[in-house]
Computed example of a mutant assay.
Amino acid sequence: MSARWSEDQWGESEQRSEFQKIRRKHSKPKGRRRIDDLTAKNTEDIADDTIRRLIDLGHLSEVVAELKSGKEATAYIARSDKGSVLLKIYRDFEARSFKNDAIYREGQVVLDQRAARAMKSRSSKGLEMLQFDWVMSEYAHLWHLWRAGLSVPEPLVGPNVKTYAETVPAVLMRLIGTEDQPAPRLSDARLSPEEARSAWQQAVGGMADMLRLGYAHGDYSTYNLLWWENQVILIDFPQLTTRQNPNFRDLLRRDAESLATSFKRHGIQETGESTLREVQRRALGPAPEPRVVLP
């Protein structure tokens, strides 16, 4: 649907077909799922159709617990034959407290004019398309960043687009931490002065790595960074935007301001301007070693 994830050479007709195939048939928008609806001894007794589908597809074996609920999605701890899983299930657009995604979508090219009109008018079908696009964008960006060697969670479905399209409205990735002790957000972590300085350097480096790839995160702060075993892990990527977006420079500057402001509680006293300059300087340097994705 959108240029954000159509780089994978998947035709728009196939995209529409996949969207229609997985389109959920319910009249009431789905918001936060109750953990009781996601679990049962037998798969057929699980109330949530998304979880049943993920289990039937072999992507999950069970949901263990709710981890965190946000304005767009709820994160759960789950299990699969690949180990512990972070299961992120997006709420329907109508059920989100955050709905204004226009600033991130500017500059995108939607070749299907009917789809473009539906999304612009935010009709019921258009909202479903926006939901589909939002989740698919997170998968596409996560795979791109993972392959490029950035410190992000490993995506567990894909890299074939058609494969991860089947999981919408869910995104599955490797759980950072353990089931008993999931990695905290950097905003919640208690750091020594030495750890805080290391975390700051890694966070600035992560923003520079994204800029080198042509991305602005759009919501970059300690609230979207995890801290595990003295390492910063970047998360939350559906709103990533590229230089095609006329708001790119503003979003990049906003990310620098947010990062500097959110690190003040860890004793790091930097300004948004100095942070942006350092990010831009580092973006001219060497890139991380790319990861090899085996078939």
Rank of each mutant, 00 (worst) to 15 (best):
P155S: 09
W143A: 02
V157M: 11
W200V: 00
Q9T: 09
V279I: 15
R249W: 05
F132H: 06
T74M: 11
L87N: 02
D188M: 12
R91A: 12
V168Q: 02
L145K: 03
G31K: 04
R33M: 05
G285K: 05
R105I: 06
W134K: 12
D56Y: 08
G126N: 06
R4V: 11
S262F: 00
R147H: 13
H59M: 10
E128I: 09
L225N: 09
Y215H: 10
W200M: 01
R23D: 09
E278W: 04
E179Q: 13
K120N: 08
P182R: 07
D36Q: 14
R291V: 03
G31W: 04
D48K: 03
D37S: 15
V64C: 03
S274W: 07
L38E: 00
S124Q: 09
H217R: 06
G58L: 13
E278N: 13
M136L: 15
R91D: 14
L234W: 09
R185D: 12
S187M: 12
V168F: 04
M136Q: 11
A260C: 08
K68A: 15
L130Q: 11
W146D: 02
E7M: 07
R122M: 11
T271V: 06
E154K: 14
T50M: 05
A216Y: 01
P288T: 05
F263D: 00
Y139D: 00
V85G: 02
M129S: 05
